[in-house]
Structures are given as C-alpha cells and as structure tokens.
Design a protein around this nucleic acid. Structure first.
Lengths: 190, 190, 190, 190
DNA sequence: AATGAATGAGACTTCATTCAT
DNA sequence: TATGAATGAAGTCTCATTCAT
C-alpha cells in the first residue's frame, strides 16, 4: 500500500557502485555511490544493509550480466575450436565494452570481501568459458588439476587481451585474434 | 628532503608496509605500519612525506628486490629456451617465496596510486623477464606490439602459476613445469 | 620525548562526561563531551577507546571520588550509632554537593553498560557505608541475606534523602536528621 | 488530534514500547517498537506525534495500570497497619509480576523526558500508596513536609524490596514481610 | 487510515598528518 | 632527529520523521 520499493533505485545503486569503484577503488565512499545513484545516503542502506553487502551484490550482478552475454552465437554442434572462439569473443568483447564493470569485478575478485561461495560461482563461470580440448597430460598433475590450470591460463590470457585492447582500442581486433591463437596454442596438447 | 639518518628505519618501514598491506590491503593505516616497523607514528612521515609517497617507495623497492633475483643462474650463451626457463624459474620462485611482497606488488599495480613512469618501469622489467624467441608475426600487429603482447601473456601465465602454486604448495614443481610448457607453446611461432 | 599525555585532559573528559550525562542522559554525544572538555572529538578516543570505555571510567572515577569522602571524621572507637551517623552524613553530603556526579552515577548504575565487577565494587562500597547494628533476624532470611537487605534499605533511604534535599536545599539539615532517624529505626531490631 | 481509529493498535504500541524499553532502554528505536506492536513504522506516528509523546503516554499508561491494582482487597474500616499492608502487598506484587512495566516506569521516571505535571501525578500516586500513621513530628519539617518524606521513604523501601525479590524470586515472601517490617518501623513515631 | 520507502541530520569511530616536546 | 599527543575531516551506519501510494 505504501510506495513500492523501487527496482530503479536498486539498479541505480548497483550501477553507481560499479562506476565509482572502477574509478576510485573499493575505498570509494558510500556517500559518493549514493550521490551518483541520485538517492540520499540513508537510502543506500535500505537496499543494502552494509557496504559489504552492497559489494557482494555488485559482484553478483556483474557476474550475471556477464553470464547473459555468453550464450550469444553459441552452437553446440560446431567444432571445438570454433565454439571456444565464440566464447572467447563473448568474454573479451564484454570486458572491452564494459570497462568499469570489468575493472570493478576484478577488484572485488581479489578483495577478500566476498564469501567463498560467491568466488566459487565466478570460478565456475570461468570454467564454463573454457570450452576447450581435452586436458593435456602434465607430469605430476591429475586430469582435474590440469583442467583447472588450463582454465586459469585461458582466463588470464583473455584478461591480458582485454587489458591491452582497452589501452589501445584501435588494435582490438588484432589483439583478439592474436590472443586467441596464443591461448589455443598454450592449451592444445603437443 | 635531506636524506634521513637511519637506513635501518627506512628499510624497516618498507618491509613493514609490505607485510601490513599484504595482510590488510592498501587501506592499512600508517600507524599500523609504523608500529610493525618499530618506530613512532610521526617518524614514518620523516621518511616518507605522505602515505602515497610511501606506497610508491614500497613498489619501487619491491621491483628492485625482484630484479636482483633475475640474474641468478643466467648464462648468456645458453640456448634461448633454456635462458627463458631460468628467468621463468627465478620469477616464479620469487613470487612463491615472498608471498607478501608478491601480493603487495599486485595490489599496488592495480591501485591507481602509482605514477605512470613507475608502472612503465615495472612493465619494462616484465619485458626483461621475457627472454623469448623472435616475436611471431601477428596479423595487424607491428613487431613491437606483438612483442609487448607476448611479454604480457608470459607474465600473466607466470602469475597464474604463482597463484596456483601458492594455494597448493605440494604441486609447485608440477605447476612450474606445466606453466612453462604452456607459456612456451603460446609464444612460439607456429 | 613527545608531548606527554595530559592528565588534565583525562580529567577534563571525565568531568565533562559527568556533567553532560547528568544533563542529557547516557545518550549524550561524545562530541558534546569533547567540546565541554575543550578537546577535539578525536582526542576523546585517544583517552578512551570507546564510548562504553569512557562510561566505565566515569563510573570508576565517581566511585573513587565518593570513597575518598568516606573516611572524613570517622572514629573507630565511637559507638555504633555515632559511626553510622558519620558515614551517613558523608554520603548524603557528597550526593548533595555533587548533584551531577550523583545523577550520573545513578544513571550508570542502572544502565547495563557496566561490567559485573564494577557493580560489585559499587555494591561493596555501599556495604561499607552501612556501619550498622547486628542484622535483625528476619523470618526466612539468612543472616547474610538480611544484612544485604538492610544495606540496600539504608542506601535507598539515603538516596531518598539526597533527592529531597536537592529539591529543597533549605531543608537539607532537617532532611538529613529525619532521614537518619527513619533509617535507624528501620534497621534496628525491635 | 482526532482520536485515531483502532484502540487495539494504540494499546499494542504502548505495550510494545514497554517491553522494548525495558529490554533496550530509552534509546530503543521507534521502528523496533512498531515492529513488536505489529504495525508499520509510520503508523506509530499517527497515534503518537513524536517519540517523546509516546514515552509520556507509556508512563501515563503504566501509572494507570498500577493504580488499578491498588484498590484490590482494600477495606476502609480495617486498622491502619493492616490497610497499609494491603497497599504494600499490592504495590510490591505488581512490581514483581510486571518486571518490564516496572523497569520501564523507573527508566522514564529518571529520564528528564517527562513533563513536571506527569511526575507530580506519579508522586501523588506514591502518596496514595502510603496509608500510614500520622506523620511523626520531625525537627524542622512541617507536617506536610514530613508526610512527603515518609511517603518517599516508604516507596523507596518498597522499590528496594521489589528489586531484591526480582533477583531472588525464591525469597519473595520473606522479602515482602521483612521489607514491610522495616518500612513500618521507619515511619512509625517513636 | 495505513503503509513503508525515503530522507538527512547526527552518532561513533578511524586516520593521515601536524606539531609541541 | 624522534616521538606520540592532538587534530578534524571523512567514513559507515542509525533513526525519528515525512510523504507518496
């Protein structure tokens, strides 16, 4: 019967937090976030009980936003390399297109402010990105350990690609292609 | 600023900062750093005019410390792959052996608290790490651009290796070998 | 070697807190206390880590101040009633002379902000006030229980006396005498 | 202010306030009171314009509730001591039976949040409790002043009795009897 | 009349930096 | 030079009260 809670404000706060954190780091004040979102300082705490709760929600939101991009253009029947390429492009494109989101997500990922289960989710998502060939047999690593390592390498090359492409947007296409080639060589058994 | 008296205190502050920042992040208080260094709160500011100045000095110091490890075991006449392996091991071993230094360096590198020329230095160092084969010719990238990209990929795989090895110390040897293989495949022209 | 911590400020804060709490209750802000003490807001927290710590220290300080008045005029050889009268007067006079201290002490005593051992101390002090005849035998109460009850009654009558005397200062002398008589009748066995 | 609709809600708020204040002190939030009362935050302010107004109403309500207990078992023809005993028991029993109400009333009584005329009322009620012998003639006090003092003493002993009985419920009967004896001795002329 | 979202003042506390000793 | 007491701005969060629904 009262004014309903505004989905708009909820979203505005998440977006504002994403921008402000990208620019100023996790130390960004709740006041600056509220201001950018266009709400009063106190209002932020009606939507998120605590700054940490807000940060967790931002992470969740960014993960979901990213996830949503991943299915685009994906075809289950295509050969492995092509499917991997689609995912690669989706991920890299997302990172380049949303630099604030990308930066904030990275800051949160290394911040020790997230619950373990949230990081799990993110790691699992990264695993999904890695449609890739059978894990190469590495001396001293089980198949699962090798898989995990390869996924991590895949992700780190993608991040490197995003980083450079953001700095030199003109070379985005070339970076994406070259990055994919390097990544593919890295994780293909020889 | 005249060079302050005690070289000991200068160093103690840098080390204390490294430890405290690794543990608590860049928000760590100057008071806690001074305390761990065994000096008074105010003394810190006689050695470093500002917290940001201290942070920059910490970064500089860590870069130098790392650099010092790089020449170990290096032989100019050995074949490329072997020389690269030596550097690889030096870097990865350093990261694993000095987790606080490694963590703090990474925090600083992404913190927007560093002057551009400092980051340059770090990037250049990473370039030096990369004793590696001739850059592969990538469509749309100049030789210098390809070089830079390959160096960045090399570094990112090394960091991934350090990260996993730190989490699972028992597999350090296997990670180092597998990581090197993947990296080498990635940056070798095919 | 640095400026020594000021005993003056420590005391000024305790006194300011006593005054402000007497006037505004335990909800009084630390800012108002610091202001009345003539120090910066932050300074308060150098002397007392927390508002609760300050409150506990205020209580302690008031108890000690009160204790200090109790030995005045006390003669161990005098008859019981006379010794009791001396204590009675000391206590009542103190309460009347320091209304803010008296009010603040009472507020703190009922505030659930004090550690149990602090209340113990206060209760023990009240017991000391009660130089009084042998406990009367009350049906269903052990000697210790009767003692405790009598002390409590003694204190409550003293407090009542202080309260009325503060409201009507002109009658202080009469209240003190009448209060003592009533108290004495109450706790003397019949 | 037009009389609000629901007598139920009015009462629920008064009761909720009594409970919450007993548990958390006068700093208890209006939100928590509204919640316990089962109404919305804003609704509270339709019944009580201000938090202070609510507090005053709570006090009033408790005084009335207490008053209602006083006539129980009272017989105008009985001897004085017996009539006094009836009142004594009524008061003490009420305090023990309604600890939240009793605690809240005391908190309010010392809070400086009440208008003088309200305290008057409370004091007058305490006077009514004191069916008691003729005031003793005390040096320097008029008959009215002595009366007032004796009433105050009577009340304070009753409160002491309630306090101890609440802490040690097993001794309630003994405390009540002993308390009455002490009180009676105190206020009987000798 | 009732609701609860929104507000912003103000509470407690931390901290980089200054400065008296 | 070294110290650590002092400062006050700024941060997170709470809450009485207002107001759109």
């Amino acid at each position: 019967m009262a004014r309903p809670r505004s989905e708009d404000k909820h979203l505005a706060l998440l977006r504002a937090a994403t921008e402000v954190i990208a620019a100023q780091g996790l130390g960004a004040s709740t006041a600056s976030i509220a201001k950018l979102a266009g709400v009063a300082e106190g209002t932020l705490f009606r939507y998120f009980a605590t700054k940490d709760v807000l940060l967790a929600a931002v992470f969740e939101h960014l993960i979901e936003a990213m996830e949503a991009c991943f299915t685009v253009g994906y075809e289950a029947n295509a050969p492995v390399k092509q499917r991997t390429l689609v995912m690669w492009n989706n991920y890299v494109d997302w990172g380049i297109a949303h630099p604030a989101a990308y930066a904030t997500m990275n800051q949160l990922a290394v911040s020790a402010k997230l619950a373990p289960e949230q990081l799990e989710k993110a790691i699992k998502l990264c695993g999904d990105v890695g449609i890739r060939p059978e894990p190469a047999p590495f001396e001293g690593l089980s198949s699962a350990e090798a898989s995990e390592f390869m996924d991590a390498v895949l992700t780190s090359i993608a991040n490197t690609t995003i980083g450079l492409a953001t700095v030199r947007p003109g070379l985005t296409g070339a970076y994406k292609a070259a990055g994919f080639e390097m990544m593919w060589q890295a994780i293909t058994p020889h």
